[in-house]
C-alpha cells in the first residue's frame, strides 16, 4: 500500500483535484448532470488520445511535435474515405487509418534514428509535412463518417440490472476511450517492450548496457504514438462527422497534460493514467470557466496560461532534478 501511495501519489492527488472540480462544477451549476458529463467525455476524447500519443514518446525520452498534425491527417483521411461510402466500408477505413498512423509514427522514429537529427527537429518537419498532406487530402473541412461510428461515442452504455440513474453516468465515449487505451497500454506495460521504452527514457546508457535494442525501441515508441494519434484523428471524425485539415490545439495541450500528469519531460517516469486524468482536469476547468459565464476567449487565455505555467513548472522540476 505504501508503495502504491508513493508511486501513485501524484495521480491520487490529481484524482482528488478532479473530484474537487466536479464538486465545484456542481456548486456553480446545480443542474450539472449526466448529460453534461457525457459531453465532457466526448470533448475529452481527442485530447485524451493526443495525450496518450505524447505520453508514449515522452516516457521514451523524446517528444512528438507532429501529434496534432497527425490527428488532422488521419481525421481527414478517414472523413474523405467515408464520405458517401457505405456503412460497411468504414469497417475497412478504421483499421486502414490506424495502420497509417502507426506507419507514419514509425517513420518519425526511423528518421530520428537514421538521420540522427534531434527528435524535436524531425517531428517539427513532420508537422509541416503532415499538415500539408492533410490539406492535400481535404482542402477544407468536409467528408463524412459512418453512422455507426458516430453512434459509438454518443449516448450511454446500457448495462442490464443497473438503474438508469447510474447508467446515465457511463457515456459510451468514456468506454471507447478506456477500451482503446487499455487494448494497447496494458499488454505493453506488461511486456518487455514496455519496460524497454521506460528504460531508454530513464537512462539510455544503462538501457544499452542492459542489452536493450535502443534504436528499435525508439522507433516502436514513435509508431505507438502515431497509432494513438490516429485514434485521436478517428475520434475527431467520429465526434464532428467530418474531417478538418487544420490541426487543433492538441500539441500544447498534450504536452501540458503530460507534464501535469506526472510524466517527466526527461523521460522514464510516469504512466498513462496520470496524463489522462490531467486531460479531464484541464477540460473540466474549461467547463467551469464557461459555466461561470466567462467570455470564451478569456477562457482560452486562462487555459493557455495554465498550460504554459504547467510546462514551466515541469521544466523547472526537471532542471532541479538534474542539479
Amino acid at each position: 500500500m505504501s508503495h502504491f501511495l508513493r508511486r501513485q501519489g501524484w495521480v491520487t492527488g490529481l484524482f482528488a483535484l478532479l473530484i474537487v472540480l466536479f464538486i465545484a462544477t456542481k456548486l456553480i451549476q446545480p443542474g450539472y448532470g449526466s448529460g453534461d458529463f457525457g459531453s465532457l467525455a466526448r470533448a475529452v476524447l481527442p485530447y485524451a488520445f493526443a495525450v496518450a500519443a505524447q505520453t508514449v514518446v515522452v516516457i521514451a525520452g523524446g517528444i512528438d511535435l507532429s501529434v496534432a498534425a497527425m490527428m488532422a491527417l488521419t481525421s481527414v483521411t478517414a472523413a474523405s474515405m467515408m464520405a458517401g461510402a457505405s456503412e460497411e466500408y468504414a469497417l475497412f477505413v478504421v483499421p486502414f487509418v490506424l495502420a497509417m498512423g502507426f506507419v507514419l509514427g514509425a517513420l518519425n522514429g526511423l528518421l530520428i534514428v537514421v538521420t540522427r537529427v534531434p527528435d524535436i527537429v524531425v517531428t517539427l518537419a513532420m508537422l509541416f509535412v503532415l499538415q500539408g498532406a492533410a490539406l492535400l487530402v481535404l482542402g477544407a473541412p468536409g467528408g463524412g463518417a459512418a453512422e455507426w461510428l458516430k453512434a459509438m461515442i454518443s449516448g450511454t452504455v446500457p448495462i442490464p440490472g443497473l438503474p438508469d440513474t447510474i447508467d446515465a453516468w457511463l457515456p459510451k465515449a468514456l468506454l471507447v476511450l478506456v477500451v482503446c487505451l487499455c487494448i494497447v497500454w496494458i499488454p505493453l506495460r506488461r511486456s518487455r517492450l514496455g519496460l524497454s521504452i521506460y528504460a531508454i527514457g530513464s537512462s539510455e546508457l544503462a538501457a544499452f548496457r542492459s542489452g536493450v535494442p535502443v534504436a528499435r525501441t525508439r522507433i516502436i515508441a514513435y509508431a505507438l504514438s502515431g497509432l494513438f494519434a490516429a485514434m485521436g484523428g478517428l475520434a475527431l471524425t467520429m465526434s464532428t462527422g467530418i474531417g478538418a485539415p487544420i490541426p487543433g490545439p492538441y500539441l500544447l495541450a498534450s504536452v501540458a497534460a503530460v507534464v501535469l500528469g506526472g510524466v517527466a519531460l526527461g523521460g522514464g517516469k510516469g504512466g498513462l493514467l496520470g496524463p489522462i486524468v490531467a486531460v479531464f482536469v484541464l477540460r473540466l476547468v474549461r467547463t467551469d470557466l464557461t459555466l461561470l459565464a466567462i467570455d470564451p476567449n478569456v477562457t482560452a487565455i486562462i487555459e493557455g496560461l495554465i498550460m504554459v505555467a504547467v510546462v514551466m513548472f515541469g521544466a523547472f522540476i526537471t532542471m532541479r532534478g538534474r542539479q
Binding site: R192, L195, Y198, S203, A206, A207
Partner: peptide
C-alpha cells in the same frame, strides 16, 4: 546499470 526509474523486479525482467 540498473534503470533508475524502474523497480528492481522490472530491472530483472528487462
Amino acid at each position: 546499470s540498473l534503470i533508475p526509474d524502474l523497480d528492481v523486479l522490472s530491472n530483472l525482467r528487462l
